[in-house]
């Protein structure tokens, strides 16, 4: 187990290193003239040069890269080009919103995906199974932003017109102002993200459950007279969950993408929307900081999922 951990962590470090190189190459070697943009159209060459020196843009590339990695390791991601606010402060402000969205959506996503998968698998080819299949396929083909807009149109706008203002149109209320207002503002974004992602899991869980239900030990459990609900709940679901855990690790990267879109549709000022806004302003330190932070988060989350997987299934450790 220790060897597995070391190998897994080493891989994570290599991946992170390659990501920093890629991000650095993308942003620092790519042709863009930030100093000139910042200095304004009528700036003299001296002003441009001084801004370049302040941002460290006049240093040789290898020096810039070392500074960049060194600073990032010290928790210094630079300052936003326009207001001089530390990027870490910007990330810290946006992170609770993104985490609220991502964690809440993940919970709904997994509960929905796993439970519908179980229902489908317990009675395959039943009406419920077919209905859930059509449902899953529909949401699998659905673009996240379109679903978000449709939920806004029907559950916010038409419902409010009809006199039921249950769902707000967007925005974020911090958890400190109460759980209910927080959850109420996030319910539509959660559903948007969760419904699209859950679709794959319905199918995955169904297939995995059907495989497990055909195993001998399930027959043994039934033969021993254990209640069917216990056979399903205790014996089958547990081992059927293994592929779902793997897939969840793989999909964390996809979750980041979904978060960006959902935050944009519901104007939630989380990491994704902050990054998109920064891109519009060519505010590179903010973009780089968020890309690095999000990549690191995905890498760490993947390691955690793999460790969890290794605990669940000892065979994994051998590879």
């Amino acid at each position: 187990m220790i060897r597995f951990l070391i190998r897994r962590l080493a891989l994570g470090v290599v991946v992170m290193w390659l990501i920093t190189v890629a991000v650095f190459a993308l942003f620092f070697i790519a042709p863009n003239d930030v100093a000139r943009t910042l200095a304004g159209r009528q700036a003299t060459p001296e002003v441009v040069a001084s801004i370049q020196a302040r941002l460290g843009l006049d240093q040789p590339l290898w020096r810039q890269y070392l500074d960049f990695v060194g600073n990032a390791l010290h928790g210094n991601l630079g300052y936003d080009y326009y207001h001089g606010v530390p990027v870490t402060t910007i990330i810290a402000a946006a992170l609770p919103i993104t985490l609220s969205l991502a964690i809440g959506a993940s919970v709904i996503w997994l509960l929905l995906g796993v439970s519908t998968g179980i229902v489908s698998a317990v009675k395959p080819r039943s009406i419920a199974d077919r209905g859930l299949t059509v449902f899953a396929l529909f949401f699998y083909s659905m673009p996240t932003f379109l679903l978000g807009l449709l939920l806004l149109l029907y559950l916010y706008f038409y419902l409010t017109l009809a006199g039921y203002s249950w769902f707000p149109p967007g925005g974020y209320v911090p958890l400190s102002q109460g759980v209910m207002p927080w959850a109420q503002h996030l319910i539509l974004p959660w559903l948007t993200l969760a419904l699209v992602l859950a679709a794959t899991y319905t199918r995955l869980m169904r297939g995995s459950m059907l495989d497990v239900l055909g195993e001998d030990y399930i027959r043994t459990a039934r033969a021993k007279g254990i209640r069917e609900s216990r056979v399903i709940g205790r014996h089958a679901v547990r081992s059927a969950l293994t592929p779902v855990v793997t897939q969840f690790g793989i999909d964390l990267g996809q979750l980041v993408g979904g978060v960006v879109v959902t935050e944009t549709v519901f104007s939630l000022p989380g990491l994704g929307k902050t990054a998109i806004d920064a891109i519009g302003q060519q505010d590179f330190p903010v973009i780089i900081g968020i890309v690095l932070f999000a990549s690191a988060a995905v890498v760490v989350a993947n390691i955690l999922v793999d460790i969890g997987y290794a605990v669940l299934d000892p065979r994994v450790r051998l590879h």
């Binding site: 942003f27 993408g257 973009i287 890309v291 890498v299």
Partner: peptide
Amino acid sequence: DVVLSVPFLLVAIALVSIT
């Protein structure tokens, strides 16, 4: 592994914004 663990959309939009 690297390509799979990079948050695709973030890097993609960053790249598009530069070019």
